[in-house]
Amino acid sequence: MTLKYLPGVATLKLATARCTGCGMCVKVCPRAVFVIKEGKAVVTDADLCMECGACAMNCAPEAVTVTKGVGCAQAVIKGFLRGTEPDCGCGDDTSCC
């Protein structure tokens, strides 16, 4: 069964006009968000997206954009307390994941 998180929140955007249909996004996405249809990438279900950013990182024509982040409550709390971006603190001396 596919676990799904909150609907309608993912920041994933695909500019189809820039897409070259190389299929890199399909290969790197761990949530099967993309398929290639008629030579272009298509988003099947944006609610599956976990905003890991793999697609955008590996999209040479920069057709895919997403605000990358870790979906981790501890990171959000730490970021809030320190006044920084969410940070899971998997730094030099600790590890959360």
Partner: peptide
């Protein structure tokens, strides 16, 4: 392995 930052 499936939660997004926006969602959290």
């Amino acid at each position: 392995t499936y939660t997004s930052l926006s969602g959290v």
